[in-house]
Amino acid sequence: MSSPQIVYAHLKEVRDFKVNKILKKAIIIDSSYTVSKVTGVLVNSNSYDAFCMDGKDVLTISTRDLLSAKDVEHMKVKPLLRKIQPLTTSDTVEKAAAILSHYRMRSVPIVEGNQILGVVNIKDIVELLHKQNLKWIPINDILTPEPITVKSNDSLATARKIMITRKIDHLPVIKGDKVSHVMTSMHLLQVVKPGEKIGMGLRGIDAKKKYESEIGNIGSTRIPNLDTHVPLSAVIESMLKNDASCCLLTLWDHVHGIVTYKDIINILESKIPSEVPLYIVGLPEDYSSAEVVKTKFDKIIRNLRKVYPEVESAKASIKTVHNPSSKQPHYDVGVRIITPYKTYNYAESGWDLSKIFDTLGSKVVRNLSQHSKKRWKTSIRKIDKKDIF
């Protein structure tokens, strides 16, 4: 297990890299476009995100957003557009990685005035990381364990629902008892893309009918499949060599995990200004919620150090799970506390992120106060409850 503090220091060169040095052409659309037209633009350019300006606001739409459209042919794209925070030419890769991870995007625009100058692609950041020595970082530190899979005889509608509700772009497809290929949101979008008009009709069948079809062989077989014991450097090299946006990690023919570009750039995780190094992965999309999380996590560690002063660093990982039966997401939160003697891990789940961190705060402080050395006379009972949160 690699130390977040060591990883953070090791990747300073990448974090400080200026985004204007990796500027690429942006896919620009107009809010008056139909879903059908934007679908064609993204499919033809093999891009996952498109952007437009609305006054001073920057709006975006992704392949997953387009999959949620009910009327592909006639619906305007405007209701599906989302406001995001852009970059400026003076920003660094660290900020770009934070925004990409925050909004679960493949590219983020660089804006000057009211003009989109271009984008920073997530793949370009991965290529910067590839130039670093990452052989000492185990892949188990960053992979997403037990990824959601679908069967080849499942319907495209099933895959669509999973991608939209879980906000994921990759689905390993099981055929028989093994993974045969991986389907992405782009593959699905290509299938349901409206056909060419012939006279008053439409070539092919409409999107609703297409979603009733089986997944079958739709997807890519050019996906790296590596052992779980390989280092991060081997995974990145294999993904770039195969031009693949994900890599499967197997153990005894079982899919143990999946690594995507997003998982990789998470090692450029946010460091919170604090008494000790604090890191958070997977902050919620809402910035006010993200700030609440940062404040609570910082307060947990500050109060912990009153009873356990030798905390060296701490990391919180937040996994957001979107349940189709509820508008409110479910959160799985893990906290890792690193001390000179041992690494402590805690986990909590729930629907209210604020309450989850409150519960974790009580659990962490209570548990580690019991492990503190006898010479530390400070007791958890001396800390006022209102100070913990």
Rank of each mutant, 00 (worst) to 15 (best):
V335G: 03
K178G: 11
A97M: 08
I116R: 07
M239K: 07
S233Y: 07
K315P: 05
T260Q: 02
S180T: 12
L87A: 05
R302L: 07
I301N: 11
K21C: 14
K385L: 15
K209S: 10
L11I: 06
V38E: 04
K131Q: 08
F357V: 00
Q132D: 11
Y48D: 08
E312S: 14
N44H: 13
H187K: 11
V7G: 10
H229M: 11
A347Y: 08
V311A: 02
G257C: 04
I301L: 08
I264D: 01
K210E: 06
N140M: 04
N44M: 13
N133L: 01
N323K: 06
E73H: 02
F357Y: 08
K373V: 14
G118F: 09
T250G: 09
L304E: 03
V72W: 10
S317P: 13
D30H: 11
R381C: 07
I116T: 01
P145Q: 15
L42F: 01
R82C: 03
D65K: 00
K197M: 15
P79D: 01
L143F: 09
R302N: 12
S289V: 03
N345G: 14
I27N: 06
P273D: 00
V365C: 03
G201N: 15
I110F: 05
I174W: 13
V307W: 04
N153G: 08
I280G: 03
Q132G: 11
E13L: 05
K21E: 12
T165R: 00
S152Y: 07
L202T: 15
I6W: 10
K178V: 15
K178S: 11
K374Q: 12
Y48Q: 05
F357H: 03
N266F: 15
K294G: 04
S369R: 12
E13N: 07
I125N: 12
N140D: 06
R64D: 03
V259A: 10
P231T: 02
A9C: 07
P224I: 03
Y8G: 08
Y344D: 07
K175G: 13
F357S: 02
D71L: 11
V321A: 04
W351G: 10
T144S: 04
S155I: 02
E348Y: 01
G350V: 09
V230Y: 01
V58T: 06
I125H: 13
I142W: 10
S289N: 12
G257A: 00
I168K: 09
T60E: 05
I6S: 10
R375P: 14
K306N: 10
K386Y: 10
I6R: 15
D352L: 11
R366G: 12
Y8R: 05
H74R: 08
